[in-house]
Simulated assay, not measured.
Amino acid sequence: MKLFSGNANRALAEKIAGYLGLPLGESLVQRFPDGEVRLQLGESVRGNDVYVIQPTAPPVNENLMELLLYADALRRSSAGRINAVVPYFGYARQDKQSIGREPISAKLVADLIERAGYHRVIAIDLHAPQIQGFFNIPVDHLRSVRLFAEYIEREGLVDGSVVVSPDAGRAEEARRLSNLLGLPMAMLAKRRTGPTETEVTYVIGDVEGLRPLIIDDIVSTGGTIRRGVDALVAAGAKPEAVVMATHAVLVGPARSNLSHMGIERVVFTDTIALDAGEGYEILSTAPLLAQAIRAVHTHQSVSALI
C-alpha cells in the first residue's frame, strides 16, 4: 500500500500516514509559468494499492485537476488499484438542476474522477448522499457525526442543549447526533432567495431556554448560520450556540458571520486545511480515514465506520 498527497491538505495526509505507519509517497506537484499543473511520481507504484489524499477544496478546480492527474500518472505507471481519498467533495452542492438549462456539475465531476482511472472513492459527509449513485465505482461515504458527539460529551455540553438542523437536508445527521447524545432536536425552516442566499422563516421544535447545538456539513459564507442563530435566540434559545460543521469552506463574510454574539463555539473538522490560530476548534478526521483505508486495503467491512 502507498499513500500520496496533493497540495490541498498535506497536513491531513501526513496525519493519516502517521496513523497507518507509512511514509507519504514521493511526488512532485508544481505549476508551469502559465498555471498548468505538472505532476511526476518519484517512486515505483507497479502493482501497488495506492491512495491519493486530496480534498477538492478551494481553489476547487486546481485541486480537482491535481486529483485527476494523479490517477493518470498512476494508471500509466501500472499501479494495481487507485483509490481517491476526497475528504471534501467539491461541486457537491450542484447535484441537481435547480432551474432549467444548467449542468448537474456533481455528476460531471464524478464521471471525470471515474474516467481518470480511480477504482474507489472515500469521502466524508457528502452534501447530497445521492452523489454515491453518480459513480459506477464503490464509494465509501464516511460520517463525522461521532466526532462531534464525542466532542460535546468531552466538553460537558450535553445538559441543557438541543440539537438543531439548519435545514431539512441535514435533518438526518441532526437526528443521528440527537440519538447519540439523548437530546431533543429542532430544525430551522428556510427558503432559498438566490443561488447562495437563504432566509430562515421559523424554528420547528422547542428551543426555549436551551443551548443550540447546530450541526451542518458545509459552512461557506456563514449567512445561514448567522440568520439561524438570530431565529433561535428570538425563539428563546440561549445565546450560547455551538456551531459544528465538517467542511470549513469559509469564503466571503464567513468569519464575520461566525463571530456572531450568539455563537459561543465553532467546531470544524480538518477535511479542509485551516489555520489553527483562527480561534476555531478543529477535530481530526485522520483516524477515521486511516481506519477506512486500512479496511479497504485488507478487504474488511467499512460499515462499522459508516
Rank of each mutant, 00 (worst) to 15 (best):
V121E: 11
L183P: 00
E102W: 05
G80A: 01
A304E: 15
P23A: 03
G42P: 01
S5M: 09
L20I: 04
E197T: 01
V163A: 01
G6N: 08
S5D: 10
N61L: 10
Y118W: 07
Q40S: 04
G169Y: 10
R38A: 15
P103R: 14
V207H: 01
G222D: 08
G35S: 07
L157C: 01
E153L: 02
G6W: 08
T56M: 03
I16T: 12
A290D: 05
D206T: 13
V139E: 06
P212R: 05
K96S: 10
R226F: 10
V86I: 14
I282Q: 00
G279A: 02
R115P: 06
A17W: 03
V29D: 09
I99D: 03
H247E: 12
H260N: 08
G236I: 12
A11H: 06
M65A: 11
R192T: 08
V243M: 04
Q54P: 11
Q40F: 13
L288G: 00
L12E: 13
L147Y: 08
G47Q: 00
V296I: 12
L69V: 11
V145A: 06
N63R: 07
V243Y: 10
L289G: 00
T198N: 03
Y91A: 02
R115I: 14
A71Y: 04
Q40T: 11
S301G: 06
R31M: 02
V86Y: 12
V162E: 06
E14H: 08
K2T: 04
A174E: 02
E153A: 14
S5W: 08
A237R: 08
G117V: 02
L157T: 04
R154G: 09
H247N: 11
V162H: 04
E281D: 15
L22H: 05
G279R: 09
L250W: 10
A276Y: 13
R227T: 13
E36W: 10
H119C: 12
V164G: 02
G262L: 09
N61Q: 14
E62P: 02
P103E: 00
R255K: 13
S98D: 07
T269F: 13
A241N: 04
P129L: 10
F268W: 06
A171V: 15
Q54H: 13
I272L: 02
L289I: 14
V45S: 12
E114Y: 02
R146F: 14
E43S: 07
D159H: 15
I82T: 07
I99W: 07
N179R: 11
S178H: 02
L157N: 03
P287S: 09
L3H: 03
T298K: 15
N9I: 02
A116T: 00
Y70T: 08
V158H: 01
V139S: 01
A168G: 12
S44D: 14
A73G: 13
S220I: 10
S27K: 08
Y88A: 06
P195H: 09
R192V: 06
V296D: 01
T298D: 15
R255Q: 15
T285Y: 00
E155I: 14
I306G: 08
V266C: 11
V29H: 02
A106I: 07
D140F: 10
P23S: 12
E173G: 14
L28N: 15
V85M: 05
R226C: 01
S178M: 05
L20F: 14
I122E: 01
D167T: 13
I225E: 04
I282S: 00
L3I: 05
R31G: 09
G35M: 08
S161Q: 03
G209I: 04
A11Q: 05
D111E: 14
I214R: 04
G21N: 12
